[in-house]
C-alpha cells in the first residue's frame, strides 16, 4: 500500500489493533496522537494524520485537513525521510526524538510512562506492507 493514503492509514490502525502487545501495554492510555510528516525527499507537502488511541485500542486513523487542529495528547513531527527510517527500522523512535530527528510536543510526564506503548505503535507501523514514495 502506498504510504499516507487512506488505505495505508486504515491498515496502520488495523496493525495497531492486531498487536496484542500494544493492547497490553496501553490498556491505561487515553489520548490521541497527531503525526506530522514534513516535506522532505520525495514528499513536497506536509501531511498530517490523527491516531485515535484509547485503552489499548486504535479508535481510528484519519488524514487532517489543512488548518484542522483536533485535541490530541501529543504531536510527533519530523521530515518524511526520518519517518521512513523509522518505518524501515533504520532509526529507533526514542533515539530519533532524543537526537532531534523527530520532535515531540505534549504531556511529557504522561508520555514518559508510555514509552513501551509508543514502541508498540512503531512495531505495528513496521508490520504494515508499505510502498514508500
Amino acid at each position: 500500500m502506498k504510504i499516507l493514503t487512506e488505505e495505508w492509514l486504515e491498515a496502520f490502525g488495523k496493525a495497531i489493533n492486531d498487536n496484542p502487545a500494544y493492547k497490553e501495554s496501553a490498556s491505561w492510555w487515553e489520548g490521541d496522537m497527531i503525526c506530522v510528516i514534513e516535506p522532505s525527499g520525495p514528499l513536497d507537502h506536509e501531511v498530517r494524520f490523527l491516531l485515535g488511541l484509547f485503552h489499548g485500542e486504535c479508535t481510528g486513523v484519519r488524514l487532517l485537513e489543512k488548518g484542522e487542529e483536533p485535541e490530541a495528547e501529543f504531536t510527533l513531527s519530523g521530515p518524511y525521510e526520518n519517518w521512513v527510517k523509522i518505518a524501515k527500522k533504520e532509526l529507533d523512535t526514542i533515539q530519533g526524538v532524543m537526537s532531534g530527528k523527530l520532535r515531540l510536543v505534549g504531556n511529557m510526564a504522561k508520555l514518559m510512562r508510555a514509552t513501551r506503548a509508543a514502541q508498540e505503535i512503531v512495531n505495528s507501523l513496521q508490520r504494515v506492507d508499505t510502498e514508500f514514495l
Partner: peptide, 13 residues
C-alpha cells in the same frame, strides 16, 4: 512495568 520508561529499552519486549 508497562509504565516504566526503561521497559521499552530491552532487546526482547
Amino acid at each position: 512495568c508497562f509504565q516504566d520508561a526503561s521497559g521499552s529499552m530491552c532487546p526482547r519486549l
